[in-house]
């Protein structure tokens, strides 16, 4: 079974938005999006369960995203493909899903996995857009995946409880971070990752026209940055037996009881 895992490099530590470009500042150190580690882990488990196959990482980002990909390779993924192109910078959902779908088409994987969100943009939507472009079934918030007889059975967590959904392969699945505990790369894994294939592709390699990528291919835009609405001043009290009454008075004053 061939499994593609879509992963993303996110800025390490505290992020900032560049006031000039109004884009996320990606100049500092990068890390593997933490939620993507759950998807990599699940891919490795699915591969182990079938006893054969390949786990390939597919990513879009700047050239240094290779470092983040190497971390996922050290976990046990077999190889990585990075779509990197100046012209892809600033891509929104429409543009990103278009390019990513082109890269995934080339791989022809049986299962395409995503992590539950991007730690930088808080985006939790990409898989559904990619699945629509690939015309494949999609299930998100997967808490459990099993595969048999050419189909996946996915337990999905929603606001109302659990759903069990069956999807024929190939299928796109976004995993919740409750699905597993990602393994730490072993020393052997880290050493081995250095010799694993890490391909780079440009937009023209994928046949992505210039007006489908980057800001040109995007349908959303950023106008400006503002301070968040101010919170009222914070009060802190010690409980000396009257705290419950103090809370009640506070709630009454705010007309919340």
């Amino acid at each position: 079974m061939k499994i593609a895992v879509c992963v993303k490099q996110v800025p390490e530590g505290n992020s900032r938005i560049d006031p000039e470009t109004k884009r996320l500042d990606r100049s500092g150190e990068g890390a593997l999006n933490a939620f993507d580690a759950n998807a990599v882990e699940e891919a490795l488990r699915l591969k182990d369960a079938t006893g054969e196959g390949e786990v390939v990482l597919v990513s879009m980002g700047p050239p240094k995203a290779q470092d983040a990909l190497r971390k996922a390779l050290a976990m046990g993924a077999d190889r990585a493909v990075l779509v990197t192109d100046e012209a892809a910078a600033g891509s929104d959902l429409v543009a990103t899903s278009y390019t990513l779908a082109k890269a995934l088409e080339r791989e022809g994987a049986d299962v395409i996995l995503f992590g539950q969100q991007a730690g930088d943009s808080d985006g939790a939507v990409l898989w559904a857009a990619v699945a629509d472009r690939l015309r494949l079934p999609v299930v998100s918030q997967a808490a459990e995946i099993t595969q048999a007889d050419g189909k996946l059975t996915v337990k999905r967590q929603t606001e109302f409880g659990y759903d069990v959904i069956e999807a024929p392969l190939p299928a796109v699945v976004a995993v919740s971070d409750a699905i597993n505990e990602p393994r730490y790369p072993s020393l052997k894994g880290i050493m081995g990752a250095k010799s694993k294939a890490q391909a780079t592709l440009s937009l023209s390699d994928l046949g992505v026209e210039g007006d489908r990528a980057g800001e040109q291919g995007s349908r959303t835009e950023v106008y400006g940055l503002n301070d968040p609405p101010a919170r009222s001043e914070s009060k802190k009290i010690e409980d000396n037996g009257n705290a419950a009454q103090a809370i009640l008075d506070f709630l009454a004053e705010k007309r919340l009881v």
Binding site: L93, V94, V125, W127, A128, D132, R133, V138, R219
Partner: peptide, 14 residues
């Protein structure tokens, strides 16, 4: 999931 699928289908900004 519906909103993102629709964005891709219509090439519409989300």
């Amino acid at each position: 999931d519906v909103a993102a699928g629709l964005a891709a289908r219509l090439d519409a900004g989300l």
